[in-house]
Design a protein around this nucleic acid. Structure first.
Lengths: 203, 203
DNA sequence: GTCTATACGCTGATAGAC
DNA sequence: GTCTATCAGCGTATAGAC
């Protein structure tokens, strides 16, 4: 549900039903793309989950790539892209660990990002720009968080905030991949906590 | 070129030409799968690169999945799976950084692993077992390396060798993904060096 | 808005001539 | 070993009735 569809008139407007239908399609596509990837999941698969014909689906999203972008944007809007939204008064470490423990309960969401992110590296993939922008935003946000800690004297000497931001995101993504392949062999929260406690000094 | 094809008679045997052809196919498939993924790259694409018909290609590899496994195994045999083979007398950090700098010169190889690894998370992907085993082996090898350092008193107090092994691999994979999307914004060697120098104490 | 029908290309794979 | 011919199936997308 995008802002333009629910603005002004509110959720009771004449387009409410269309918006609901679009939302159902996006959620179905989310599960299909997570399980099979963008190239591996077909519009028919999505239509089957929603319970409508493949051509009706194209009435809402003229092309498959439009559906992919809708899925990616919806995911970011709903859950802050699965990364830690730092609550007021909460430390960075606590926020990251809280998000990690939450993520372990929704493997489908992690799988969607992991699969589509790597797939977006391939030729002519419609999600590439999205992931480039996503990483740039994440690096900027965490770099700012580390700079804030540095200002309080809580960043270990010699740690570069920007490189640490890229490293934290990389570690997070990489450990999720290993976890998806073999959950019992990987301690996601443990790896992230170890890293953060190495570079962030206690209050 | 597998051991069974070149054993006993050596590379001059009656199967030498077939082996060369298979090798050419594998290399072509490597570039196609790296650029388009396993599902996105077709046998026709591979055949075009080799310069033969798609059906002739199937004479050497009866199914597309066989070709994928051949690509993955060849890559591991040739380059030690792109990870640091520690030379005698060389430290772990030096080995990792040397491999990283080398990898920057062969982005196609990095792309192959990154794309296929995440794609292998999807349903019915023939590469899944390979990547599960690969990660298990890598975690074991690096855990042993860290245990060796710990025995020398060169592992920072409180660092768990097994978790550090998973973290190092995760950081490595994750930073490669960011680097493939936006090379100029990421310092792969810097991130890895920072991490290793945090947990490994100088000699 | 939803459907059926369909266009049209590409897919991996098989059969069989040479 | 390499090819042509061909298969059955699936892919996205379009046209148009209702």
């Amino acid at each position: 549900m995008t802002a333009s569809e629910t603005s002004a008139r509110g959720r009771r407007g004449p387009y409410a039903k269309a918006a609901e239908k679009k939302q159902a399609i996006v959620e179905a596509a989310h599960s299909v793309f997570a399980a099979r990837g963008y190239r591996g999941g077909s519009l028919q698969d999505v239509a089957d989950v929603v319970g409508m014909s493949q051509t009706s689906l194209l009435h809402y999203f003229p092309a498959k790539s439009d559906l992919l972008l809708a899925v990616l944007e919806w995911r970011d809007q709903v859950s802050g892209d699965g990364r830690a939204p730092v609550d007021p008064g909460e430390g960075l470490i606590d926020a990251v660990l809280r998000q990690t423990l939450f993520n372990e309960k929704i493997p489908g969401v992690i799988e969607l990002y992991t699969v589509l992110c790597a797939e977006s590296l391939t030729q002519d993939h419609p999600g590439r720009e999205f992931f480039v922008a996503r990483f740039a935003n994440l690096r900027r946000d965490y770099a700012e968080a580390f700079e804030g800690l540095a200002a309080e004297g809580r960043l270990r000497a010699g740690v570069d905030p920007r490189r640490a931001a890229a490293s934290l995101i990389a570690l997070w993504d990489g450990i999720q991949t290993q976890w998806l392949l073999e959950p019992e062999s990987v301690d996601m929260a443990g790896s992230l906590r170890d890293y953060l406690e190495l570079i962030v000094l206690p209050e």
